[in-house]
Simulated scan of single mutants.
Amino acid sequence: METILSIKDLNKNYGKIQAVKNLSFDIIKGNIYGILGPNGSGKSTTLGIILNVVNRTSGSFSWFNGNISTHKALKKVGAIIERPNFYPYMTARQNLQLICQIKGVSYDKINDTLETVNLFERKDDKFRTYSLGMKQRLAIASALLNDPEILILDEPTNGLDPQGIHEIRQIIKKIAENGTTILLASHLLDEVEKVCTHVIVLQKGEKLYSGRVETMVASNGIIEIKTEENIENTINVLKNYHETASVNVDGDLIIVQLENDISSATLNKYLFENNITISHLVKRKPSLEQQFLDLTNN
């Protein structure tokens, strides 16, 4: 598997503030990576460093297995890290033609990129007539003009309405299906869970987790229980079960975190043998949100 980007022990200080702390991770070709964290966690600073618009304090990064310089590598990168800025009196096609001239690429991919972002039918409309979501989609189109191997997006759905968010997510998936590696920064858990294959969780510049999204949310499960019996007695019985990791109460539900993967029937049998009758028992996996909150203790 080809390593598109490798970051090693990266640090960035702004005076006494350390925005990025000993950050290391790899981006492997063909995946969708999400850098997840709240505002101020170091997401945008990290993207700025790898795109050579922010100077690092220490550490290193290399593109494409370190075989080419950063300057040459960035010609194979498409990126949007700020609010798109186009000429309002020019059409979408004219704006993209201008960007082609700046990047030194032909006009050949303009129609294809407009098709990809679902703007081909509006290609001859002036930019000022576009909605916020359409403007963001045109920005993505502009980043695809040089046929990049990796597309980098900083908060791609920020400020959009639900329809605009859905459109951007679908476009990101479509671009990835065509073989382009994606790296996006987001503070939206839902966005990362629905779009990304891998996630890097940052808090105050430090990496808390790096790996597949499905691995992060994988666990031995959580079982929700509702009973008409004495809740305190039920909790005590559950705490004495050898497969129980923790027991919490959420409203009228008892939430049991398991140590190992067991069936609902097995736990139900244990409760019945201890004279606990239940009216509700559902096994579920924890969400990315819950795992994120557990990681950050927030």
Rank of each mutant, 00 (worst) to 15 (best):
A218S: 15
T215K: 06
T116W: 03
K29A: 02
Q94P: 07
F64G: 07
S131A: 07
G30W: 15
L267W: 04
T244C: 05
N220R: 08
A143Q: 07
V249S: 03
S142C: 05
A141H: 03
L145D: 05
Q290L: 08
N298V: 02
A185S: 14
A92P: 05
D112V: 09
K204I: 09
S106F: 03
G59T: 05
G205F: 09
D252P: 01
Q203E: 12
Y270I: 07
F272D: 15
V105D: 13
V282N: 12
E259G: 09
L119M: 14
G251D: 04
I68E: 07
I172S: 05
G221D: 01
S106I: 07
N85G: 13
N39L: 04
I17R: 11
Y241L: 06
F61E: 00
D26N: 13
K126D: 03
N55R: 13
K135P: 04
I80Y: 11
D294R: 12
K103R: 04
S186E: 04
S41G: 01
L138G: 06
L293E: 15
I278S: 00
G211K: 13
A92F: 01
I35H: 04
T296Y: 01
T113N: 09
E191H: 08
K194V: 00
Y209L: 00
L10F: 15
E193G: 04
L5A: 08
K135A: 15
D250H: 14
Y209T: 02
T113A: 10
E224P: 06
Y241E: 13
N11H: 13
R83H: 13
I175Y: 06
E214G: 03
L288Q: 03
I278M: 01
S69M: 06
A185G: 11
K43P: 04
E167H: 02
N248D: 14
E229S: 09
I254A: 02
D124Y: 08
A185L: 03
G42Q: 07
Q136Y: 02
S142G: 09
Y33E: 06
I4C: 00
S58L: 05
L10N: 11
